[in-house]
Computed example of a mutant assay.
Amino acid sequence: MTAVNSFISSNYTWLSWTAAGMALVLFWVSGFFLFRIIHYHLSKWASKTETDLDDIIILSGKPHVITWSFLSGLFVAGKIAPLTPSIAPVLDKAILSLFLLSITFLAANIASLAIKNYGTKANLSLPLTGLTDTLVRVVIVIIGALIILANLGISITPILTALGVGSLAVALALQDTLSNLIAGFHIIAGKQFRPGDYIKIDSGQEGYIVDIGWRTTRLRELSNNIIVIPNVKIGSSIITNYYLPQKEMSVVIPVGVAYGSNLEKVEKVTIEVANSVLRSVTGGIKEFDAFVRYNSFGDSSIDLSVILRVKEFTDKFLITHEFIKQLHERYRTEGIEIPFPQRVVHTIQK
């Protein structure tokens, strides 16, 4: 009788483990196919709605649904399998912790994508940068980690105490990194510039702002090279932002004509050419009326400035290029001389 009971018990154990394994595989595979079906219909529904939030949730949840199916199967398998009383609670806590971890990363991803999506459509008080994205993710991950620790029954008080004691050593070891991090926050909070703005630093570097990170700011030059500048240097530099208060800007082009020129005619011809360029060349402000200002008697010419208006900083290169070409041709046609630099020296012979 004892042998029969032992045989039945061993077979029952083997069958229980087999059933647990099958449940795990069944949940995992079913979750995969169920997800494909649900994702297909939800995507069709989301494409018809005006808000982008549902698209963000579906896109972010895609890799997590399979994980949840696996964890569900693992939970059911744990209930079927003949686990010892000491192992079963540990498995339950581990499954719940993994589920909370997945939820945490999902929430962080949804928050990041939502801020990026709606931030580009709305004029937010803070520019959207890599630093703000990292900050949002870190805050959500920290909250999720605290919830997971509470679920595991771990007191966070000793952890916070240890962090407080160790923060001084960390601050001393990471002085440069922390300085750049704080400088990055100051740049963002001060709204000195945003990603996409064209700036010039007093040290000579200039380009489009690609991103403001937790340690550096990246610029993209017109030559398409990337300049990496520490946030501390950016924060202490004199910066010209060509996109503030607006992208539209004036372009001042210096011109010189001979002393014998008819200045009224020079002004009229120059303005005609400038207005023609503004209305025909891409980047010019068609509604703007160019004007001329004489400003000095040079060594070999009467100097004047021609003021045009362009849509943004980089448009000035093409506008200047076409203006010089057309003005040179028109001056030649009208008989207006552009003198070569020269200096007349009078000598007295005795």
Rank of each mutant, 00 (worst) to 15 (best):
R137K: 09
K79Y: 15
V266Q: 15
A162D: 08
H321L: 05
I238H: 12
K316T: 13
P254L: 08
K191P: 03
S72Y: 14
L308M: 14
M22I: 15
I147W: 07
T49S: 09
R332Q: 11
D54V: 15
I182F: 14
I338S: 14
L222S: 07
D303E: 11
I80S: 02
K79N: 15
F288W: 03
G61R: 06
E267I: 04
T18R: 02
F105Y: 03
L128A: 00
V65A: 01
D202R: 03
R343Q: 13
T13W: 11
N225D: 09
I238A: 05
L263G: 03
D133G: 04
E322M: 14
Q342D: 05
T216S: 14
L34M: 14
M249F: 00
V292A: 07
S296Y: 03
N5A: 06
V136F: 05
D54M: 11
P254Q: 06
R36W: 03
D211P: 07
I154A: 12
G256T: 11
G260L: 00
A107W: 01
L15C: 02
W14Y: 09
V252A: 10
W68E: 10
F323G: 01
D54L: 10
V345G: 03
K200R: 11
I8M: 13
A173N: 06
S280A: 04
A111C: 09
T217P: 03
K44V: 10
T13L: 11
N262M: 01
L34W: 11
V65C: 03
R215G: 05
E312N: 08
S276D: 13
K44A: 10
F99G: 09
I140S: 01
V281L: 11
G284D: 03
P339A: 11
T177V: 12
F99S: 04
D52N: 10
F288A: 01
L152P: 04
I324P: 00
I239K: 08
S261E: 14
D133K: 01
W17I: 05
A290V: 10
L59H: 11
L222F: 05
G283I: 03
N117A: 12
K350N: 07
M22P: 00
D133F: 00
S69V: 04
L149D: 00
T120R: 13
I156G: 01
A20C: 04
R279G: 10
E334W: 04
